[in-house]
Amino acid sequence: MNLMNFVYAFLLLLAAFVFQTTLTGINRKVVARLQRRRGPRFYQQFIDIFKALSKGSTTHGWVFDFGVVMALGGIMATAIFIPFGPLKAVPAMDNIFIIAYVLAVGMLGMAMSASGSGNPWASIGVSRALTNMLAYDIPFMMVVFGLIFAFDTSSLSGLAAIQREGGFLGWHVIRFPLGGIVAMISLQGMLGKKPFDSFIAPAEIASGPMVEYGGRHLGMLFLLHEFSTFIEVSLIVHLFFGGGATVAAFLVKYALIYTFLNIVSNVLPRFKIDQAVTFFYKVPLALAVVQTFLIIVVGMGVA
């Protein structure tokens, strides 16, 4: 690791931010069209973020600030590990388990900061978010586990490259359709989109973890949200949709998947948190176990 790596990393972060934020704006428009509205400008998300950052804020003590910084820092670090199409800021660090766990630093920072505000709604929201995580992560990890066993690598770009060898039909979503379905459902959970968004339920628990944030804290949380969306969607693109031989290919796949999930999200109601857990353990987990069993024991789709 030298200085160039960091400069490179910074540029990639910037690119990821611009791309994902624009995409979020476009998606707001898409959703508006679904609802027969005109919707905001496509760059509305930028305005929102910069506005939030420009405002004054209140703090409830050092852990409230520190948690936000730790959260955004952790998430940005994770985003640096994600290959941006074929581009990688840090070589040989796109190990899926590293990403999964570094991601948790951000989550922990966010949770810590939220609870540090002293608002019980924040704690309730965090408790729901963590429960949600326990639900969606396990089916996802199981599928990933199968992939790693099958191809003997846990590198994201490595797994993506293996898929591209077989062209479109080599994509894991085609070869391991069950796994693909599980991953998509889990992604929905990861992104906190409906029906798995009960942890922010604005009308019920006043947006949960975010209840006390305003000004720069809130702005940073929006940034965090963009980056974590980038990480999570990229994971799926790399693991199941062949990654990207070029940046453009990567971004197109990315945009399509994200928009698709967003549309799905907007026609669904919301699960209660225990319903979400039950659902994940009944359907996706079962599918994931079947898929992994097929990979490990039968070898289906591997060769």
Partner: peptide, 28 residues
Amino acid sequence: VFGFGFLIALVIFMLMQKSRRVGLMDTY
């Protein structure tokens, strides 16, 4: 890398307006 991310976040945080300290009971 984690330190780097943390650093960027810290810079963003520091650049923006100072926060007003409120008590723990001053919550929504």
